[in-house]
Amino acid sequence: MSEVSKPRPQYRNLNLFTDVRTYRLPLAGLVSILHRVSGFLMFLLLPFIIWLFDKSISSEISFGQFSAAFSAGLWIFPGWFVKLVVLALIWSYLHHLFAGVRHLYLDVSHRTTKEFGRHSAATVLVASIALTLILGAKLFGLY
C-alpha cells in the first residue's frame, strides 16, 4: 500500500494579504532579491559615492572635509548617520559582488541543484555580513 501524502500548496499568483505571510522564500531567492536591492542602493547613492571620492583625492583641504564628514557630519546629518550610510554602501557593494560572482558561477558551471543553491546562497550571506561587520568595526573605530 502506498501512503498518500498531503498535497503541497502551489503558489502561482501570490496574494499580498493572504499568501505572503505563509510563503517561505528559499535562501537562494532571498539572496537574489538582496542582489537587486544592493544594486539599487549603490545606484541611488552614486552621487554621494562620487562626492566622497572627489573629496578624498582633490587636495589636502578637501581630504580634511572628507574626514570631517565622518566625525562632525554633513549639512544636517550627524557623523554617525554618515557612517551608517557608508556602512550600508559597504554591505551593498560586498553583497552585490559576492552574489554576482555566485550568479556567474552558476551560469558557467550549470550546477543548478537545490542543495548547491542553498549552500552557495548561505555562503554569500555569511561572507557579505561577516566582512561588513569587520569593516564596520573599523569604520566606527573599534580597532
Results as ranks from 00 to 15, higher is better:
Met42Gly: 04
Thr113Ser: 08
Ser109Arg: 10
Phe98Asp: 04
Ala88Ile: 05
Phe43Trp: 01
Val82Glu: 02
Gln65Phe: 13
Arg8Phe: 09
Ile50Trp: 06
Leu27Ser: 12
Pro9Lys: 03
Val108His: 08
Thr112Asp: 15
Arg12Tyr: 14
Phe48Gln: 03
Ile61His: 10
His96Phe: 08
Met42Arg: 00
Phe116Arg: 13
Leu46Lys: 10
Trp51Cys: 00
Ile49Gly: 04
Thr123Pro: 00
Ile49Phe: 00
Gly39Met: 00
Gly79Ile: 05
Trp80Ser: 15
Ser67Glu: 12
Tyr143Gln: 09
Thr132Arg: 04
Ser71Trp: 04
Gln10Phe: 14
Leu139Pro: 05
Ser109Glu: 05
Phe40Arg: 02
Asp19Gly: 00
Ser56Lys: 09
Gly39Asn: 04
Asp107Arg: 15
Val82Pro: 03
Pro9Tyr: 07
Leu135Asn: 07
Asp19Glu: 08
Ala72Pro: 00
Ser38Phe: 02
Val82Ser: 04
Lys114Pro: 10
Ser120Gln: 11
Leu27Thr: 14
Thr132His: 03
Gly141Ser: 09
Ser32Val: 13
His110Trp: 10
Ile49Pro: 02
Pro26Ala: 12
Phe40Pro: 01
Ile57His: 09
Arg8Cys: 12
Leu94Thr: 04
His96Arg: 05
Ser56Val: 00
Val101Met: 01
Val85Cys: 12
Glu60Cys: 12
Arg102Tyr: 10
Leu142Val: 08
Leu87Lys: 00
Val101Arg: 05
Asp19Leu: 05
Leu133Ser: 05
Arg118Asp: 08
Ile134Phe: 13
Leu125Val: 11
Trp80Leu: 13
Asp54His: 13
Tyr93Ile: 12
Phe77Gln: 02
Phe48Asn: 03
Arg8Met: 10
Thr123Lys: 06
Leu25Pro: 09
Ser71Phe: 12
Phe81Arg: 13
Ser120Trp: 07
Leu135Ala: 12
Phe116Lys: 13
Gly64Asp: 00
Glu115Pro: 08
Leu104Arg: 08
Asp107Tyr: 14
Val4Lys: 11
Arg118Gln: 08
Asp107Ala: 15
Ala99Met: 00
Lys114Val: 15
Leu84Glu: 02
Pro26Val: 11
Ile61Pro: 01
Val101Cys: 00
Phe48Pro: 03
Asp54Thr: 13
Leu16Asp: 13
Ser67Tyr: 14
Phe98Ala: 04
His35Arg: 05
Thr123Ala: 02
Ala121Leu: 07
Gly100Cys: 02
Ile90Met: 03
Phe116Cys: 09
Thr22Met: 14
Leu27Lys: 13
Arg111Asn: 15
His95Tyr: 01
Leu34Met: 12
Ala137Cys: 14
His95Asn: 01
Leu139Val: 07
Phe98Gly: 01
Trp91His: 11
Gly39Ala: 01
Asp54Gln: 14
Asp19Asn: 01
Ala72His: 08
Pro47Trp: 05
Ala127Trp: 05
Leu133Asn: 03
Leu106Phe: 15
Phe98Asn: 07
Ser92Met: 09
Val86Trp: 01
Glu60Trp: 06
Leu30Ala: 15
Thr18Asp: 14
Phe81Val: 11
Val124His: 01
